[in-house]
């Protein structure tokens, strides 16, 4: 199976502190990956490197076969990104926000219109497209952001703590929807979280702690290997600090 994302020996530091230290990841096409780690583990830094808001020559990143250093724009075109902090323009309508994103990906008016209709229908937001984003609740805003990230048919969807601040039913609904994307569209999803209850046994779990990958395998397999009953116990066993996630 082809690799959607390949991260090789990635290191990154802020001043003297290494926030990512020899990170290696191989993400296969059409799989769901949960990136679990406490606040400050380096998840957002990793995401910023993946989407080129930060750059380093310590290590290599290939997105859908495109190096972020040698073919940065092709690498970006293959990514759909939902940031931790909302990036919607509150003054604009849902449709205007989506049209803006589509234009930044060079989509023609016709292609953009069709994609907007498709994604809004998928997220049951079609009747809200003329509404100002300011009038939407947190759950709907998140759905709009995910719909926006999918407009240009990316190979990989990056979700940086996308469920932060949402109530439990909304979180579950969004997470279920995202997992469905892997099957229905063959998209690879890398979803970061600091909440252990968001990781399901059927997910592929990547555990990032203090800038290092401590675990990278199917969650159920990790649970069996460590002989623990849940992700919380698994997390505690693997992290030396014993800090609760």
């Amino acid at each position: 199976m082809s690799l959607a994302l390949n991260v090789d020996s990635l290191r990154y530091r802020y001043q003297q502190k290494w926030v990512l230290d020899n990170v290696n990841l191989q993400l296969e096409q059409g799989q769901f990956y949960a990136l679990l780690g406490p606040n400050g583990a380096g998840k957002s830094t990793l995401f910023n490197l993946l989407c080129q808001l930060l750059q380093t020559r310590d290590g290599a990143i290939d997105v859908a076969g495109h190096s972020t250093l040698k073919a940065p724009r092709k690498a970006l075109a293959a990514l759909g990104i939902v940031f931790q902090q909302s990036t919607l323009d509150l003054d604009l309508t849902v449709q205007q926000n989506l049209e803006y994103h589509a234009s930044l990906h060079g989509m023609s008016s016709k292609a953009s219109k069709a994609a907007i209709e498709r994604e809004l229908a998928r997220f049951e937001l079609i009747d809200r497209k003329k509404d100002s984003v300011r009038s939407l609740n947190g759950g709907h805003r998140r759905r709009v952001e995910i719909a926006r990230a999918l407009l240009h048919d990316p190979a990989i969807l990056l979700l940086d703590e996308a469920s932060v601040g949402l109530d439990m039913p909304t979180r579950d609904s969004i997470n279920q929807h995202i997992r469905g994307l892997c099957e229905s569209r063959g998209i690879t999803v890398l979803s970061s979280t600091h909440l252990v209850d968001e990781v399901l046994p059927e997910d592929h779990l990547i555990l990032l702690h203090q800038g290092k990958i401590l675990l990278d395998k199917p969650c159920q397999q990790a649970l069996d290997d460590e002989q623990v009953g849940g992700v919380k116990s698994l997390y505690r066993n693997l992290t030396t600090s014993g800090e609760a996630a």
């Binding site: 989407c51 909302s86 990036t87 323009d89 994103h101």
Partner: peptide, 12 residues
């Protein structure tokens, strides 16, 4: 607010 990221992560 973060919306600058949308511009800066565009493949252009």
């Amino acid at each position: 607010m973060g919306s600058m990221k949308i511009l800066l992560t565009s493949p252009l």
